[in-house]
Design a protein around this nucleic acid. Sequence first.
DNA 1: TTGTAAGCGTTATCAG
DNA 2: CTGATAACGCTTACAA
Lengths: 337, 337
Amino acid sequence: MATTIKDIARIAGVSPSTVSRILSNKKTLSSGYAPETISKINQIAKDLNYRKNRSAIELVTKTSQVLGIILPASPTNFAQEIIAGIQKVASLHDIDVIIAYAGEDSELLQMQALKTISERSVRGILLLGITLSATNAQFLRASDIPYIFLSVAQPEPDLPFIASNDFDIGYQATNYLIMHGHREIAFVGADIPSCVGQLRLDGYRQALKDHQIAYRADYVIPGNWLYEDGIQAMNMLEKLPHLTAVVAGSDLVAAGVINRARQLHHHIPSDLSIIGIDGTALCDIIYPQLTSIQQSFYEMGVKGTEQLIRQANITSSYTPICTKKGGSVATRNKQNE
Amino acid sequence: MATTIKDIARIAGVSPSTVSRILSNKKTLSSGYAPETISKINQIAKDLNYRKNRSAIELVTKTSQVLGIILPASPTNFAQEIIAGIQKVASLHDIDVIIAYAGEDSELLQMQALKTISERSVRGILLLGITLSATNAQFLRASDIPYIFLSVAQPEPDLPFIASNDFDIGYQATNYLIMHGHREIAFVGADIPSCVGQLRLDGYRQALKDHQIAYRADYVIPGNWLYEDGIQAMNMLEKLPHLTAVVAGSDLVAAGVINRARQLHHHIPSDLSIIGIDGTALCDIIYPQLTSIQQSFYEMGVKGTEQLIRQANITSSYTPICTKKGGSVATRNKQNE
DNA sequence: TTGTAAGCGTTATCAG
DNA sequence: CTGATAACGCTTACAA
């Protein structure tokens, strides 16, 4: 049987209210108590190994110091960075974090995760790297808990998000290669049906168009942002002799392309230039080091958490992207073509 | 104002207990209700957008379907794998997961995380990759919540754990290199003061001893399991001309050693052989692919979670390790020495 | 098959 | 400055 406030009150010879006030340490109230009483209560609490009962507190106060995070079942390698940002801000405000995992594609698992989080009186919900089905989005709206999506821009205006501008990412990645003299550029490993994939592809196409480069459907090889997708993509790229550069959907995809290219005796970057997307720690670890469009993941976590904690009205915004230079892109002499 | 069971009861014209019984879906009880009543209640609940109040439920039932996880502030790259294992088992049992972050070295932050978790009526606590201070360990024992440490073996017998045998890891890594003809072997990047680091070093020394190889203190370069430690270590290894092989404390350290070695124009593995520890996905991604002593992280998560859920008495155990072969170790001709 | 009532541990309101 | 007392939303004997 766990120790309660009543136990302490009985032993100390005071009322439960007194104990509650002292233990919950409200500045305005406990300041009035005799230091003697205060230390006595604290001592007994320690002796009896007293622990607050959060359920009781949350029930009566109807508030909590908890933030809910919903993650895709297989968190991407940058989820870590976003969570670090969340964690940083949360701990600054003495706020705890609950995590629930949602299957990306299973509507049922999504709902499960939403319920898990929304049934606990959380102060806000952060949805990382997922897109909800219409039904589930409706459920979320109806919960009257503040929420914000991170890293995936949402089309509906009442689903606020903090993310990179994926069109810009696609555009800049492609443009970077064009600026280095490439005109035969593949776009591989992205999950095209997804919002993110679609926008990046749009950016890729626009960059081509702006430089009078014809779009070729066989230069687009879809995937799921995975290392294996890079491997697969490279197998197909082999058959495209004019190709000189690749936009990879993620750093992982880029790593797959690079490694498979090496196995096929193509030299990176002299035979084939590659630019990644994400700018994760992986860029420095693989060889050659990867040039990548870097996203501000940590900042997404920070900004999202601050908004939720501040309780102000939540607004969508984009975080900056920048080009992180590695050694995977070579300048191409235009005469070569 | 959120909908409660009473609201539903009032509208349906039944008592709150009826609603409670139907909504909580106890097989034994709700089976007795008229199907009509049941569907009516469910319909109203849906219409009114009813959500259970977990605080109230946990307060009255004094149990919960939640598992607490405590993570080091900067989770290692394999934490993901362990969590995946935890998540897998937990979701199978309809159990939620709460995560709190503890600063590895700060006793205060550790305590903070312990409080966070133990104040919520969790069913059990999983401690990932951390070692508690004596005071904090005592706090944990006193909480009367079942707990288990994952991935770090604990010296005290009343702190159950599931981990790899770190002595064996150190021994096998070293032995693998010896079996490939190496006798001048460095041991780098490990956090020597830690339990894990100490045990692996012991294994390393024992392997040397078993093959009549003298231990050399200048062959041991401590670190913190990080990529940067590998870089640093390689800078120092440069000055040791007889060296032919390296045991890296982690895959990340190995990646650092390899990349720095390349910059210094040493060829891997012909000039220098390297074996990593952990066997993470990174092994396949870096070049050359890394030979590594692989740990069973996923299994640690699975086994730990099952133990906690089963509520049986928790016992320590070791998960298996195996050698994952890459291309970073070369066989050395013994005559060369 | 359903209803009544007590109580989980805490805080908040209001007296004293 | 301190103490009753009532709530918070739910479950669960016990009654009917």
